[in-house]
Amino acid sequence: MKRWGIAQLLLTTGLSIALWLVAAIACTCVGSTGIHWPAPGQWSYRLEPVILSSLVGAALAAAGVVYQAILRNPLADPYLLGVSTGASLAGYLWKLQFIATLLGALGLGAAAVSQQLFAFAGALASVAIVLALSSRRGRLEPLTLLLVGVIVNAVNAAIFLLISTISRDLTAVPTFLIGGIQTNLSNQQIASAAVAIAIGWILLMWIAGHLNTAILSEGEAQSLGVRIHRLRWTAMVVASLITASAVAISGPIGFVGLVCPHLARLVVGSDHRRLLPISTALGAALLAIADAASRLMIGSAQTWLPVGVLTALLGGPFFLALLWQNRRRMALAEGLS
């Protein structure tokens, strides 16, 4: 039994960073022309997709850990809950001329309302709709939650396609539908996403010890000294913030937030103080690797394979396996109670 003190916290965070660094360095060696150590002039454009995919993967995996804990549902994921498409749709709306005009009329310039803030509002709106429609007498029903998430995703996608068709702008369609790492972002966009994700992650680590009580009933959590409603709302808002920050730069990439927490659980168990940093590192590493693989698969062809294609191809079967296993878990949990 090891004490979770400062040393353990720093060691776990350090190991997580080291795990990500190994994967990130390997990924900088992957380009559309093959695998080799980057030449001096290649570093900047090799590093950018690795940093961006790591940032997005880290955010989605951390949010996945939190959603699974506070919703007490191992199948929860920012994409499956509709959070990602909500953020992505709002992020797209922000770019439209009539929204800019509307914001101007309200006295809010584009500088005041950033794309991240807009995406955050979209993420919160989606999660609020999903939670409102899937709870009965204050209790969330896991299956209904996922079904409502699917419907919200479909409606968000339909609204997006309608607007993009009317405005004759179909360039963003692949990114919206499946998500991918783009390298045409401004430094300001990248920096604001990185800052929001970093602050959000530190806040989540701050409450990670109490997230362990989120799996209990409300009465039990309260009796352990945790203000469970405040904890759930704080965690929900912060997880939605970092999801929105990631999705604003990548579109909705599925299954990273589902798969990584489960892989991390196999390594470090269910204590959220260890689970959160390890899952975050796994998310950063896996998405960087998936993005590098997608670059390698395309080769020198003048096209682009969104990384969301790979994560969906790998994550879809994983989700089905998890759904199957979850039936056993639920039966066990019922047996325990």
Binding site: M1, R3, W4, G5, I6, L9, M205, W206, A208, G209, H210, N212, T213, I215, L216, S217, G219, E220, L224, G225, V226, R265, G269, S270, D271, H272, R273, R329, L332, A333, L336, S337
Partner: peptide
């Protein structure tokens, strides 16, 4: 409570350590 809840992945020691929740510091420090 009548039906205490738990995560089926938890070990006995994890359940016992949850009892120290009122005493934990920031970052869940023990």
């Amino acid at each position: 409570p009548q039906s205490p809840q738990t995560d089926v992945d938890q070990r006995v020691v994890d359940v016992l350590r949850l009892g120290r929740a009122p005493y934990l510091g920031p970052f869940g420090l023990e």
